[in-house]
Simulated scan of single mutants.
Amino acid sequence: MVARTVLHDADITRALRRIAHEVLESRRGDGRLVFLGIPTRGATLADRIQRIVEEIEPGVSTAGALDITLYRDDLARTPTRTPAPTRIPADGIDDAIVVLVDDVLYSGRTIRAALDALVDHGRPRVVRLAVLVDRGHRELPIRADFVGKNLPSATSERVSVHLVEIDGVDEVTIKP
């Protein structure tokens, strides 16, 4: 079973640039933006989007990472997860526009855990969700505000995001 590449490096760059512009438009010039990525690849994507936003509108955003390991509802089934560091910007998240960033939105359970983790760190004005890939199959009523690519897939397929900072290549693959 060979994985099929559905997004290449240029596609990922274009999607992240589009997400950055959409976030800025939705902000309407009001409020501090905090991009919080869900480790591992979501944190990398949050950093990339934040850098693009800074190129367009300097000084309006910061980025960090939000570990959700202890908030997951599947710890009893897969208890051997290693927590990743949480990095909250020095200004915190109180009254900020927080954009949670993840690589793939699937069941919605990861985002539910992120929302639970987020409230332990402050009270944002509003929380938005940005994902590189939305593959459907939601188990919870969660949807992304900003999507790089909608990728309908079968539940039996595996969607993988590879990023140059972690994997040495930028691509999204789908494997039967």
Rank of each mutant, 00 (worst) to 15 (best):
Thr5Arg: 14
Val6Tyr: 15
Leu7Glu: 11
His8Leu: 07
Asp9Pro: 01
Ala10Arg: 14
Arg14Tyr: 00
Arg18Glu: 04
Ile19Pro: 08
Glu22Met: 07
Glu25Asp: 12
Arg27Val: 05
Gly29Tyr: 03
Gly29Phe: 03
Arg32Thr: 11
Ile38Asn: 03
Pro39Gly: 04
Arg41Ile: 02
Ala43Arg: 06
Asp47Tyr: 06
Arg51Cys: 01
Ile52Ser: 10
Ile56Leu: 15
Gly59Asn: 13
Gly59Ala: 06
Thr62Tyr: 13
Thr62Trp: 14
Thr62Met: 14
Thr62Phe: 09
Ala65Asn: 12
Leu66His: 07
Leu66Pro: 04
Thr69Gln: 07
Leu70Arg: 15
Leu70Tyr: 15
Arg72Val: 00
Arg81Trp: 05
Pro83Gly: 05
Pro89Ile: 13
Pro89Met: 10
Pro89Leu: 06
Asp91Tyr: 04
Asp91Thr: 13
Gly92Ser: 07
Gly92Asp: 07
Gly92Cys: 05
Ile97Lys: 15
Val99Lys: 14
Val99Gly: 08
Asp102Arg: 15
Leu105Lys: 11
Leu105Pro: 02
Arg109Met: 04
Thr110Leu: 11
Arg112Ala: 10
Ala113Ile: 12
Val119Met: 12
Gly122Gln: 08
Arg123Phe: 03
Pro124Cys: 11
Val127Leu: 05
Val127Phe: 05
Arg135Glu: 05
Glu139Ser: 13
Leu140Thr: 01
Leu140Trp: 03
Arg143Met: 10
Arg143His: 00
Val147Leu: 07
Ser153Gly: 04
Ser153Cys: 12
Glu157Ser: 08
Arg158Leu: 00
Leu163Gln: 06
Val164Gly: 00
Glu165Thr: 00
Val172Phe: 14
Ile174Asp: 10
